[in-house]
Design a protein around this nucleic acid. Structure first.
Length: 921
RNA sequence: GGGCGAAUAGCUCAGCUGGUUCAGAGCGCCUGCCUUACACGCAGGAAGUCGGGGGUUCGAAUCCCUCUUCGCCCACCA
């Protein structure tokens, strides 16, 4: 009954609702799919967050997008499997625990490998589930029964299997070369892990003494003077005429005076610097190439920690290269020392500012040191080729498509992958060496004895694998590979991968390669690359900048749905999302307000509906009013559009489409229009025709109450379904309260509305639009003449044509109510003093305003309107009289313009007539 | 040094295949309203030469060129 007091509070409180509903979803196993489910699968594997991570808003965006897709497909009847998990994140996690250990006054070296790793495990066991719990708070519908950690025993076996297979295929090899070394993390890094940052460094011009050359000195330019100690040659371009006389002579390193040859090599760019290049093969990748070509010695002059010193272990140095006073100095301190000494000795020609890109460790941001060492590499070219083809033949698509070009470029220029990390936390490299015969092999199980000579003195490679070497197996290893599990058969390959473009190469490209290599098929069909969350200055949100937003704060203050709404509505396809960390209210209130709007529509609807509402198809179509049929048409159009948007990953568009339907169409118009019918108890008998009596709709509409209830219930139910993927909590909460709900029914598992094209009626929408225009016209007049809302107006409509008249009469109650009219008449209104509005179809509305206006005022208003119309008409007429337009534009465009012209002329003529009849000049 | 993206209302952004969704939304602003679902709301407004310039076209916010300003990615110039 409409008079029943509302038993729901007028403001929605998400805190009371969200965790309760999440528990209910879990209890119903709503997010789990059995491998033998008959439903066609839809699979997303989560980009596993670092096991030490706590949720930030970047995760929030990534995971909410996935959740919307998964919930959408689940409602569409797919067996939606969203596999969650965490990544052991070798360097990052080891760093975190090393800091903890340091706080306890000890180091990992004090503890030793075994105890340190156990310490990390303890930490992970204690805190590793935090981020997954946080995902629940924001509503993520992951299948928690299949949660995977990349160091789980089964997963570790998969990593080992992958390694051994690649070993057996001879794709893994020992490389002796210059790699990126992090002196802080004390490990090598892949090319991708050593990130460029633009900096203004200095270019030092240093003089080297030359024996028997054309000049007594030559000058080299370097940004890293400290590497000078490791120089083993000076190189010039073979065709550089300036320096030809130097080739074959001997130069001397300043300070140490060590003699080095001057050689010719094409790698030297004669146009850069002085044309002389110092060659430090052990500390520069290019120099290493030169050194190899010329068989130069390759002494290391830095320790792994980045301090000056001999490191006989791996280099091929002859020793005695680092003078005693410099030994043990940090590389940057040594640089200053050396520069000062050079200056003192007059060997520093000049120092120039020099902008260049310096590589930093992606985990600790330390400047990376190029360093000669032995590492395990994977040969990538053969793996990349089919992965590139998978993109080119369309088996893998990128959204937005432009990322495909980036992917292509990287794949075509792929380099071998350094997978060794000098860490303790991770998958130990399963390579063994026999102490007796020296045999080296990779093994799936830890061997007891050498397979060659049977000796039992074996050593395992001390290093662990790059974390990404386990991540690239995620889409199949997480489902049990290499075992042929039912899960693997069912859920591989998956469908959509959602991630940020930053890890396109780290992870996405490698997953495609691994998927094709180990599983014969790409792991997913579509890669959706979303944007980055930034602040209003377009800076990436980060802990160090202090510009982050804690998603859990947002949940606390505004609710999870509000967080989700802002993230989804704010991110158009592939574009960055800008949020203001200093103004959470502006950023998140719209989402909260929308949830509250839904809540209140729900309060109203629920108060109007009886315990049983007949399904729409049992309602006699003849009892449906224009407004009923209009809202149903709008709903179906929304279903069609929102479905299409979601299918194309245009989540913001789909979300906003539903928002508009709910707020603009359903709440602002339909609910308001339908109130009188809901309030009028039904009498027996069928309604008679609408045309006729002035208050036809009010009186004869009475029997349509049940139709109104059915339509209202149907539309609201559908709206909740449409919005559920984006705002799952509020929609589930309200849906539970709708009439006829069985106790175990969940919106989360309910069906997505199917599109019913029969209910879409463009003509009908136009008709209702005329009603809306009349209402808005009257409201405008009221505002313009400052008529207080309480003073009830009398208005009269003169419809142009019988069809329009029928429409206006049928919806006269709607018009009367929404325009706050005391009385609405049709035609024949006395031409008293009042205001007029004239519509595109030539229909006219008159609002009686004795005392409120004078004729002069109304004349001014109407002639302003006519001037505006005249100008528009003039432009349109010019367009239509342009022969080129008429001849070349498509016929339907021309026809539409003609129709527009016709309408405007009606309107203009009607205005003219009105001005004349009022006696305006 | 290459490649990509962005510039639209005061702010944050939509605008996809050129033309009745073409100049939009949310927030903010102005004017009225506590109209019995909602003031986290309702109604009515103001506000932009779509970064500059050129071109293609009957027609350009939309396509092309160019310039400016900001991002991002890739690259061994010491």
């Amino acid at each position: 009954m409409s008079s029943t007091p509302f038993d729901l509070p007028p403001q929605y409180d998400p805190r009371e609702v969200e965790s309760r509903l999440y528990q209910r979803w879990l209890a119903a196993d709503a997010f789990t799919v059995r491998a033998d489910s008959p439903k066609p699968p839809y699979v997303i594997v989560i980009p596993p967050p670092n096991v030490t991570a706590i949720l930030h808003v970047g995760h929030g965006l990534n995971d909410v997008i996935q959740d919307v897709l998964v919930r959408f497909e689940r409602m569409r009847g797919r067996g939606a499997e969203w596999l969650p998990g965490t990544d052991h994140a070798g360097i990052a996690t080891q760093n975190v625990v090393e800091k903890l250990v340091a706080a306890e006054g000890t180091t990992r070296f004090d503890l030793g490998r075994e105890r340190f790793v156990e310490r990390v495990w303890a930490f992970v066991r204690e805190t590793g589930g935090v981020i997954l719990e946080q995902l629940k708070i924001i509503g993520c519908s992951c299948d928690w029964s299949r949660t995977v950690f990349t160091l789980d025993p089964a997963y570790s076996q998969a990593v080992r299997e992958a390694f051994v297979r690649l070993w057996e295929e001879k794709r893994i090899y020992r490389g002796h070369r210059v790699i990126h070394w992090c002196p802080h993390c004390l490990t090598s890094l892949s090319d991708e892990e050593a990130e460029f940052a633009d900096e203004t460094g200095k270019l030092y011009h240093i003089r080297y003494r030359v024996d028997g050359g054309p000049q007594p000195f030559l000058t080299v330019a370097t940004t890293r003077p400290e590497t000078m100690l490791g120089d083993t040659a000076i190189a010039v371009h073979p065709d550089d005429p300036r320096h030809a006389g130097f080739i074959g002579k001997t130069a001397h390193i300043p300070i140490t005076d060590i003699a080095i040859p001057i050689i010719a090599d094409e790698a030297v760019d004669p146009k850069f610097g002085t044309g002389f290049v110092k060659v430090t093969p052990a500390h520069d990748a290019n120099d290493f190439e030169i050194g190899t070509r010329h068989k130069l010695p390759m002494p290391l002059v830095m320790t792994p920690e980045g301090r000056m010193g001999e490191d006989g272990g791996r280099g091929t140095g002859e020793g005695g290269r680092v003078p005693a006073p410099l030994q043990g100095l940090d590389r940057f301190e040594a640089r200053d020392r050396i520069v000062k000494q050079l200056k003192d000795e007059g060997l520093l020609d000049k120092v120039e500012p020099h902008p260049h890109a310096v590589r930093h460790c992606y985990r600790c941001d330390t400047v990376v040191e190029p360093r000669l060492s032995d590492q395990w590499f994977v040969a990538m070219k053969d793996l990349a080729r089919p992965a590139l083809a998978a993109y080119q033949d369309g088996r893998v698509k990128f959204v937005p498509d432009r990322w495909g070009a980036t992917y292509e470029h990287w794949m075509e220029n792929i380099r071998d992958w350094n997978i060794s990390r000098q860490l303790w936390w991770g998958h130990r490299i399963p390579v063994f060496t026999c102490g007796k015969c020296g045999h080296v092999w990779a093994a799936r199980q830890d061997p007891a004895a050498c397979p060659k000579c049977g000796d039992r003195k074996l050593t395992q490679d001390p290093d662990v694998l790059d974390t990404w070497f386990s991540s690239w197996l995620w889409p199949f290893a997480a489902f049990g590979w290499p075992e042929r599990t039912p899960d693997l058969a069912r859920f591989y390959p998956g469908h959509t991968l959602v991630t940020a473009p930053e890890i396109l190469f780290f992870w996405v490209a490698r997953m495609i390669m691994a998927g094709i290599h180990f599983m014969e098929r790409p792991p997913f069909a579509t890669v959706y690359l979303h944007g980055t969350v930034r602040d209003t200055q377009h800076r990436k949100m980060s802990k160090s900048l202090g510009n982050g937003i804690d998603p859990l704060d947002v949940v606390r203050l505004y609710g999870a749905d509000a967080l989700r709404w802002t993230l989804i509505a704010g991110s158009s396809l592939g574009a960055d999302v800008v949020l203001d960390p200093n103004d959470l209210e502006t950023t998140f209130a719209p989402g909260r307000n929308f949830a509250n709007k839904l809540w209140n529509i729900g309060r109203f609807v629920l108060a109007q509906l009886p315990g049983e509402v007949p399904p729409l198809e049992r309602i006699d179509r003849h009892t449906l009013t224009l407004a009923d049929r209009w809202i149903l048409s709008r709903l179906e159009a929304t279903v069609r559009d929102a479905t299409g948007s979601f299918e194309q990953f245009r989540l913001d568009e789909g979300a906003k489409r539903c928002f508009d339907f709910v707020w603009k169409d359903l709440a602002d118009w339909y609910v308001e229009a339908v109130k009188p019918r809901l309030a009028t108890p039904e009498r027996g008998g069928a309604p008679s025709g609408a045309a006729g009596a002035r208050w036809a709709a009010a009186e004869e509409g009475a029997p349509t109450r049940s139709a109104a209830q059915a339509v209202l219930c149907y539309c609201f139910d559908a709206a909740l379904r449409l919005l559920h993927p984006v705002v799952p909590f509020i929609t589930e909460e309200l849906w539970q309260k709708l009439p006829g709900r069985k106790p175990d029914e969940l919106l989360t598992l309910a069906a997505w509305p199917s599109f019913n094209p029969d209910l879409v009626d463009a003509e009908l929408e136009m008709q209702f639009q005329r009603v809306q225009q009349v209402v808005e016209g009257i409201r405008s007049i009221r505002a313009e003449y400052r008529i207080p809302p309480k003073s009830r107006l009398r208005a009269s409509i003169t419809a142009r044509g019988r069809d329009n008249r029928v429409i206006f009469e049928a919806e006269s109650e709607t018009i009367r109510r929404l325009a706050q009219l005391e009385e609405l008449a049709f035609d024949g209104a006395a031409k008293r003093v009042g205001a007029h509005a004239i519509f595109g179809d030539g229909s006219e509305v008159f609002v009686a305003l004795e005392g409120a206006i004078d004729v002069q005022q109304e004349c001014t208003r109407l002639s302003t309107e006519r001037t505006r119309l005249d100008q528009q008409l003039e432009r349109l007429t010019a367009k239509l009289s342009n022969e080129n337009f008429v001849a070349r534009a498509p016929a339907d465009v021309v026809a539409r313009e003609r129709e527009k012209e016709r309408e405007w002329r009606f309107q203009r003529d009607a205005l003219d007539g009105k001005l004349k009849s009022l006696g305006c000049s």
